Amino acid sequence: MERDLGTFERMLGDSADLVRLVRSPVFSAEEQLAALDALLAKAGISGLAANFVKLAARNRRLFALPDMIRAFRALLAEKRGEATAEVVSAVALSDAHVAALKDALAASTGKTVNISARVDPALIGGLVVKVGSRMIDTSLRTKLNSLKFAMKEVG
């Protein structure tokens, strides 16, 4: 089921037309169901995952499907003792840096940590790491903004 829902989620990310079908109230439940039935069969998604997507279509809840998939993944990760860390860096992280970060976060959280990395050159340097509700911001941009704010208070 997890793999099939991941496949469907990737399909949503790759197709603006599919997103339109899922989000638009213009299409009837029957039209959405017929289109999804064909797409799911073509993608090889069947069983429980296909039934889940079709149920959401029948109940006019397709717009909430991405959030439902994320919630399912979060519950599954919690059950497995895993956590996902969202990491933003100024430059792409090397494999060695990702491994070191995983080890440090695993030691800190006591869970197996998966890294979801993205690059934001506006950070200038450093990292912003978010695990659950905790956020660690060591970016140069934040430090410079803090210094700028402190200088304004003095002057």
Rank of each mutant, 00 (worst) to 15 (best):
M11K: 07
I45G: 00
L147Y: 06
K143G: 01
P66Q: 04
R23Y: 09
S146M: 12
F72N: 07
G13E: 08
F52G: 04
V98T: 11
A85Q: 13
E2H: 04
L76I: 12
L75Q: 14
L5K: 08
S46K: 10
E30N: 14
D4E: 12
L147G: 09
A107E: 08
L33H: 11
F52V: 06
T138V: 07
L76E: 15
S108K: 13
A64I: 06
S146F: 06
E86W: 04
A35C: 07
L21K: 11
M11Y: 07
V53W: 04
N114W: 00
L105A: 05
I115C: 04
L62M: 05
N51K: 11
E153C: 03
L123F: 06
A35H: 11
N114P: 04
F72D: 02
V113M: 06
K143V: 01
K148Q: 13
V131F: 05
A92P: 08
R61C: 00
E9G: 05
E78S: 06
V128G: 09
M1S: 10
I45N: 00
A117G: 05
L62Y: 03
L55Q: 09
L75M: 08
M135T: 15
T109R: 04
S146H: 14
E9A: 12
N59A: 14
A107S: 12
T7F: 03
I124R: 02
T109E: 08
V113P: 00
A49G: 00
K152A: 12
L65C: 01
G44P: 00
L36R: 02
G132C: 13
Q32M: 08
A71G: 10
L39W: 01
D95W: 15
R141D: 14
G47P: 00
G125Q: 03
A49F: 04
V26N: 10
F52Y: 10
A35I: 06
A150D: 14
K152I: 02
T7K: 03
L123D: 07
L33Y: 10
I45D: 01
A150G: 11
L40Q: 09
K102T: 13
F149A: 14
A92Y: 07
L62H: 00
R3C: 12
V91P: 03
A92C: 05
V26D: 10
L123Y: 05
R73Y: 13
A56K: 03
K102P: 03
V88Y: 05
I45C: 01
L40D: 09
G6V: 01
K152E: 15
Q32V: 14
K54P: 06
D67E: 13
N59K: 13
S146A: 15
A100F: 07
V98C: 05
K152Y: 03
S108L: 12
P121Y: 08
L65E: 03
K79W: 07
D137R: 07
T109C: 10
D14A: 04
A74K: 10
V87T: 02
V154M: 14
M68G: 09
S46L: 04
R73W: 06
A74I: 11
I45E: 00
H97Q: 15
A71I: 08
V131R: 04
T142S: 15
L36W: 01
E82C: 11
A85R: 06
L40H: 02
T138P: 01
G126S: 10
I115R: 02
D17M: 14
